[in-house]
């Protein structure tokens, strides 16, 4: 696929600046203010990482603080065997999210194929609703459904089968990973599908007509016209998601849904470091963890990008 044009300015030697160079400088100058903003708000605050190596005292100049070297980083691993299940949980939950990346895309394709445009629009709008609910509210809804004695599901269940035990996925360690992934999907799929719907909207209608003329059935049209239209986006988001595996769905979801029965399955790096760090109000420790996570994620990013180059020929950068 084309990724840019070649400058078709005739190459003439003139006195003064070569027009090609002028063009490059102009581009560069145009980018500069935006890069400045980016650096100002994303890279400048990283000076704070230096505090991960010191006994941090808020407000005091650096010279006043005791050098701590790598001791805070060592503390991360002091959890010993507590850290291993936490890492495992993070990777499993993160990986489950990665493999469900295509779900919003599939949803977008199906919406596109629906015959009734009105119904399609309604489903699309309604599917974005859960995105706007905080996890605290989703918990309230889940509780409403699955509370042991007064939950909707269990009340109905006991009316028809009085002897069966109550159903509560929030309390099940076995189903914990699946349940959390399902919740994540319900919350984000509809909203994320918007990206793919936009990508599909950009596909030339003529391609569909041409395919139909060539005798392609519905699924062949999807496979040969629609899918190639969204694959670039899908792949990019896939690479980004792989690099994000250490964060999985984010702090909020697991913090809200934790309880003693499932904690050993859904305690992730973010919630674990919160527990360890918060009891100490220990800023340097929290910074050490944040820094480690960032660096490892970026390494994974480059690795995933490299893989993408091998597999698909194109890469993120």
């Amino acid at each position: 696929m084309d990724t840019g044009i070649s400058t078709s300015v005739p190459e003439r030697t003139r006195r003064g600046i070569n027009p090609k160079t002028k063009h490059k400088l102009k581009l560069f100058a145009l980018m500069t203010p935006f890069m400045a903003l980016l650096i100002a708000f994303n890279y400048v605050p990283l000076f704070g990482w230096v505090y991960a190596f010191f006994n941090y005292i808020p407000g005091a100049p650096l010279s006043q603080m005791e050098f701590a070297g790598l001791s805070y980083f060592k503390t991360i691993f002091a959890g010993g065997s507590e850290l291993i299940p936490v890492l495992r949980n993070t990777l499993v939950l993160g990986f489950l999210i990665v493999i469900t990346i295509p779900v919003p895309a599939i949803f977008a394709i199906l919406l596109n194929e629906m015959r009734s445009k009105t119904l399609s629009k309604i489903v699309q709008t309604v599917s974005t609703l859960p995105y706007f609910l905080s996890y605290v509210l989703i918990f309230a809804v889940m509780f409403f459904l699955f509370s042991n004695d007064s939950g909707l599901v269990n009340t109905l269940l006991h009316r028809f089968r009085p002897d069966s035990p109550s159903v509560n996925p929030m309390a099940s360690s076995t189903w914990a990973w699946g349940f959390q992934t399902l919740l994540h999907l319900i919350k984000t799929s509809g909203f994320n599908a918007i990206i793919y719907i936009a990508a599909i909207a950009g596909i030339d209608r003529e391609q569909y007509d041409a395919a139909e003329v060539d005798g392609a059935g519905r699924f062949q049209r999807i496979w040969h016209v629609t899918v190639p239209g969204i694959v670039p986006t899908l792949f990019v988001l896939l690479v980004l998601s792989i690099a994000n595996v250490l964060t999985a769905s984010g702090f909020d979801q697991y913090y809200v849904f934790t309880n003693p029965l499932v904690a050993d399955k859904i305690d992730v790096i973010d919630t674990y470091s919160y527990t360890i760090g918060i009891t100490q109000n220990n800023y340097a420790f929290a910074t050490a963890i944040g820094m480690s996570k960032s660096l490892v994620s970026i390494l994974i990013l480059f690795a995933a990008n490299f893989l993408s180059k091998i597999v698909r020929g194109t890469s993120l950068f």
């Binding site: 505090y51 994000n244 970026i298 950068f317």
Partner: peptide, 15 residues
């Protein structure tokens, strides 16, 4: 530089 910003977090106090 642009892409990496998605994985960098500086922490509350430096921010």
């Amino acid at each position: 530089l642009i892409v990496m910003t998605m994985y960098l977090s500086a922490g509350i106090i430096p921010w």
